[in-house]
Each structure stands twice: as structure tokens, then as C-alpha cells.
């Protein structure tokens, strides 16, 4: 998935990535906006910066994110 800056996303599941920490479980179901996708190599494995509504900005693995609109 190549995410773009400004896309609305949902944290729809827990990620199996090693960067997922227990406190991030609270993010599941939250909606947010991609604020800094991988700006260097367009890598589906890279962590992306997401600003979650009411939960702050975090760098999350892409496999837990679902795009809400194009």
C-alpha cells in the first residue's frame, strides 16, 4: 500500500510488526490522517506518521492501516 499525505485512514487492526507496542492497542478503531508517509523509497514495510483524531501523532506500521477514502 502506498499511502499519500493527507489520506484519511483507520487503524483497523493490531499490527504484527515489532514496532507495535501494547499502548497502541488503544488506537484500534481510531481514524486519522497520514501526515508523513514514507517520503524516500515508497516502501510498504516502512513506518508512516499518522495523526489520529484525539490521540496524537504516531509512527505506525502500514499493515494496521486502512484507507477510508481515495
Amino acid at each position: 500500500m502506498a499511502l499519500r499525505k493527507g489520506q484519511k485512514v483507520e487503524v483497523f487492526r493490531r499490527s504484527g510488526d515489532e514496532s507495535w507496542e501494547p499502548y497502541m492497542d488503544k488506537f484500534i478503531g481510531r481514524h486519522g490522517i497520514i501526515t508523513d508517509p514514507d517520503t524516500s523509497i515508497n516502501d510498504p514495510e516502512s513506518l508512516v506518521e499518522v495523526s489520529l483524531d484525539g490521540m496524537g501523532t504516531h509512527r505506525l506500521p502500514q499493515d494496521c492501516l486502512r484507507v477510508l477514502e481515495a
Binding site: G6, T35, E49, S51, D53
Partner: peptide, 8 residues
């Protein structure tokens, strides 16, 4: 700044 604030 990449301004996450402006996106929200």
C-alpha cells in the same frame, strides 16, 4: 516542518 497540525 511537515506540519501535521495543518492536516488536522
Amino acid at each position: 516542518c511537515t506540519r501535521p497540525c495543518e492536516f488536522m
